[in-house]
Design a protein around this nucleic acid. Structure first.
Lengths: 245, 245
DNA sequence: GTTAATTTGTTCGTATGTATC
DNA sequence: TGATACATACGAACAAATTAA
């Protein structure tokens, strides 16, 4: 390997690696060769390769995990938590194809937690919907939604067809609803969630618990969503909010 | 052990366990005796104890971890992500004593990421502050803050004394600032973060990346905060925001 | 569950060329 | 010219995390 004079070797190596990535030799999520292999390939010291990797990591092009290797960084989908957050809009706004698959639906009695969130009586019947959200066929989130059964009888069929809760709500004459609040926690994924999200078991999931209300302020949905932290980051924008809050 | 008639035994056991917890026999985070031990103590079948535990878990009083045991649930501190989020206000609003300790401060050149977030030139000097936030002596968060060095020369001394960035800003004539936005991800903690937060290494941390601006919109701080997911949950309130967002 | 191999992270030391005062 | 600082590059050794046997 011959190096141009006047430019640091590690910068030149960085450009070569970047070329490989943009050319698709290494795809998002792929593991790069080890530092020793790269050092051998470029005929330089391992530290020189590390300098190049450090610069590309800083640029968010790759990601290094101690003991595992260096990986091409997947772009994280920004999921904005606003009062009118809509999954399909977020995904299609990124020029990716949204899809939401209904895994199961059940009618059951509200547990204490669900009854409180939905503001219905304990033991009132609720509909439980379980779904997986995808963008371009890549799983992003695994959700469980609870809705009051009285108001939305049979919504699971409409949801399964339209693949959208927003659309299903419209079928029930509900043309608009807003997110009241969102609570965010992090946990290790259950086996089932890890499988559904096709996510590493040793990477956490971001969990949101949210409450949606209709125009009159009536609660229409309580949802628990598990996001693949490898592919999604949540985003809160305070610029468009009132300065009084 | 004698049981009252007319009330299910598991309910009575549940009440006894709840009494133990409120009395402080078992403190938040403590491990309860195993189901078999409890069954022996109460002279009932293990499944009866399990019914009691299931009810208390539903009430968020305790938490069961397969293969590990049953634990008294720590109450999660709600950390609201608003435009005027202030750590000390959030904590003292919960009648807990806030404290922020400066771990280290450095002057260094802005990396590409920091320069972009702070909207300063690459290579401009920035101040890096590392701190741990506590409530009642319990660590909640580990933060790294970047500030433009030109504007806030020597702020680390004021911060170390006042233990508050808000107060330190006032020293520089900056009486008000707002949170522009927040990005939320989840990761496994580094060894150092786990130690500082006194958190289990196999529990994730919630990470926020936030940008603060002064009244004129100038960026004054870029902060990365790691929250102990065992003790903090983030909260987004959409009710007090403009419906246009 | 333990051990061993693999891979990245950190810290020494050494040497060289370049820019600056 | 000298003194100094800084970035670059290499080598060796060890620490820490992960994975596989």
């Amino acid at each position: 390997m011959e190096w141009e004079k006047g430019e640091a070797i590690w910068k030149q190596i960085g450009r070569l690696l970047l070329q490989d990535i943009t050319a698709g030799v290494y795809k998002p999520g792929d593991k790069l060769p080890t530092e020793n292999e790269l050092a051998k390939r470029f005929g330089v010291n391992r530290h020189t390769v590390r300098s190049a990797i450090a610069a590309l990591t800083e640029d968010n092009v790759m990601r290094v995990e101690q003991g595992r290797g260096t990986f091409v960084q997947e772009s994280l989908m920004d999921y904005t938590l606003g009062s009118r957050t809509r999954f399909s809009q977020i995904v299609s706004g990124r020029h990716r194809l949204p899809d939401k698959t209904l895994l199961s639906s059940e009618r059951e009695k509200a547990t204490k937690q669900v009854a409180k969130k939905l503001m219905v009586a304990r033991d009132e019947k609720v509909i439980k919907l379980e779904s997986v959200s995808q963008a371009d066929g890549i799983a992003l989130a695994h959700s469980i939604s609870y809705l009051p059964a009285l108001r939305f009888k049979g919504i699971e069929k409409v949801f399964a067809e339209t693949k959208s809760l927003t659309e299903a709500f419209k079928y029930f004459g509900l043309n608009d609803y807003t997110r009241k609040n969102t609570r965010i926690t992090a946990q290790m994924p259950s086996k089932r969630t890890a499988e559904l999200l096709k996510q590493a078991k040793n990477k956490p999931v971001l969990i949101t618990e949210s409450v949606d209300v209709d125009a009159t302020g009536k609660v229409i949905q309580f949802g628990i969503t598990h996001f693949a932290s490898e592919r999604v980051q949540l985003f809160v924008d305070n610029e468009s909010t009132s300065p009084l809050s």
